[in-house]
């Protein structure tokens, strides 16, 4: 704060001291140490790539790596497809149901991941809700494998991440001038062609950002894969946890954490560039 306009400008940085110190101490420094550790030999402490070599030759680790990618990809697509109609409704509707739908779309965020995962377990497990129902209806006689596999995890994560998809699409669709749709309709376009030729192309940036945020958050999720996926379902996040707390192999945990970090940062970075390119292309003004 410059008091009379004559104070040295360094005073402006004083309020930054507490937050920056805390972030340095508990974020920047630990991150640096962790990255350093991943390049260290476990015994001698000298520079080595052994841990990385081990990761990329370890079948179990690679299996978990690819499962992370597949799982995150599936979740990203499901989240975006399911968010779109809700976001479109929220952006355009003026009905009084809008507030209800909005609350419903955002409320799960308050409940936390544990409650929701628990709910899905009750619904999807072998003696669960869905299996009970279809067996009672006589459609099948043995329970469907709905949990402790990829299906269950994708369902659970999609539910957890829907609010993020809805919010990123909502911001985008709200930015599309509704008059564009009106003028397309007046020019004779059907509802379907308005969707195909006007709204979808203009909401590509929103779709991209929804895909990206869902992908990165799914790749870093721990609770849902651990609980809905069962013991055999391993992804990077669960493997990192095991390395730290059961095998106490910290350099290896650091390697896995760095692999996850690189995936997430690479996707976030290319995504941000893609999005800004798309946005600058679409904004004629």
């Amino acid at each position: 704060m410059r008091l009379g306009g004559t104070m040295p400008s360094l005073r402006g940085y004083v309020p930054l001291i507490p937050p920056v110190t805390i972030l340095m101490m508990f974020f920047a420094l630990p991150m640096g140490m962790m990255i350093g550790l991943s390049f260290q030999d476990g015994d001698t402490g000298s520079f080595s790539l052994t841990s990385y070599e081990r990761f990329f030759t370890d079948d179990l680790a690679l299996d978990g790596f690819f499962r992370t990618i597949v799982m995150s990809g599936l979740v990203a697509v499901c989240v975006t497809v399911m968010s779109y109609p809700i976001a479109y409704f929220l952006a355009r509707s003026t009905s009084r149901w809008r507030a209800v739908v909005f609350a419903l779309a955002i409320a799960p965020e308050l409940a936390g991941v544990v409650l929701r995962t628990y709910g899905w377990l009750i619904i999807l497990e072998d003696q669960g809700f869905v299996n009970d129902l279809v067996i009672q209806l006589g459609l099948i006689d043995r329970p469907l494998p709905l949990s402790h596999n990829m299906f269950g995890v994708v369902v659970g994560l999609t539910h957890v991440l829907l609010p993020f998809g809805i919010l990123s699409l909502l911001t985008n669709i709200q930015g599309i001038d509704p008059n564009l749709e009106k003028s397309a309709q007046i020019l004779g376009a059907s509802r379907l062609s308005v969707l195909r030729h006007i709204i979808l192309p203009l909401s590509v940036p929103g779709i991209v950002s929804s895909l990206l945020i869902a992908f990165t958050l799914a790749a870093s999720a721990y609770a849902t894969p651990a609980l809905l996926g069962g013991i055999k379902f391993s992804v990077l996040a669960t493997m990192i946890y095991q390395q730290v707390l059961f095998y106490i192999n910290w350099p290896y945990a650091a390697v896995m954490a760095n692999v996850l970090l690189v995936i997430v940062l690479a996707i976030a970075f290319t995504g941000a560039r893609l999005e800004s390119r798309l946005n600058s292309k679409l904004h004629v003004r």
Binding site: L23, A219, Y241, V244, W250
Partner: peptide, 27 residues
């Protein structure tokens, strides 16, 4: 730039931050 620094923990997955903090505290 300072704003980016203040927001930077958002870019790092929580589980990665968790590993980093536990390694930091122990070492």
């Amino acid at each position: 730039a300072i704003m980016s620094f203040l927001l930077s923990p958002l870019a790092v997955p929580q589980i990665v931050k968790g590993v980093a903090i536990v390694l930091f505290l122990s070492s």
